[in-house]
Amino acid sequence: MAFVEARDLTKHFVIRRGWFARPTVVRALTGVNLEIERRETLGVVGESGCGKSTLGRCLIRLIEPTSGQVLFDGEDVLALHGEELRSLRRRMQIVFQNPFSSLNPRMTVRDIVAEPLKAHTNMRGSELTARVIELLRQVGLNESHLYRYPREFSGGQAQRIAVARALALNPDFIVLDEPTSALDVSVQATVVNLLEELQAELGLTYLFISHDLSVVQHISNRIAVMYLGEIVEMGNAEEIFHSPMHPYTQALLSATPMVDPETRRERIILEGSVPNPANPPSGCHFHTRCPAAMAFCADEKPPLREINGRLVACHLHE
């Protein structure tokens, strides 16, 4: 059985504009099924509004899904309450994009990293400080950083503090939500390397969310490509990168600017922009922008089907 599993996971946000206005429903996530094996990195890519962050947050129950199931190491995450849920939460953590907004500017590094330990363990005083120092060393910082504030650090160092906090309770599963998107390339490289080292050392399982395909293909074993709240293609990272099957994956890859001429592809320029998830197109959500759309794509939604060991939701592959 998979370590983390989502079954038909759906999240609808209901937005009310004013007292008498009819509420609109934003379908952020619709019927997502996925499995993540232990020690695996599943990359999730897609453009803004595709539901990739919502997926990450639903998996660790930071937000309540509207329907569906999340299984974590065999336990039904959405059925748990109280102390059971609390103890499960120790095992799943998250790192956000911008460390300067996810770290409290008024807290010292020691207090930031110690906070989860105070909330979940009986560690106090010198024992607590010793554990914080150990965690800081694990992410390439040291005790000289203990009593400094987040603003005194560069973006890359601040992100290391956020990683140290996520590691504090020895989690098994970490959702990494665009952890390197706010960083310069040379710094991004050090954070990506750190995440890979920690994974090997601690046996971590990652959900790596990013809009940057080159980073995702680097760090992931498998990739899920999302469009308007649904997975349109999922499979081995290398295979998807070399031979994308869904027209959206193909467009996304061709649009990603590449430095090496040999990895550059014929550019497919999609028309228009991502439709409003409050009012998604009929049939295949992508048909309004798809260069290969056929007449019945507007009527019939393609299911996610297995083709040569890969999952693809497209009528072209039938």
Binding site: V185, S186, Q188, A189, V192, E196, S214, V215, Q217, H218, I219, A237, E238, F241, H242, V259, D260, T263
Partner: peptide, 10 residues
């Protein structure tokens, strides 16, 4: 060299 490249995955 700091850029992730498909030729040097993982």
């Amino acid at each position: 060299n700091a850029l992730p490249r498909p030729s040097a995955r993982r």
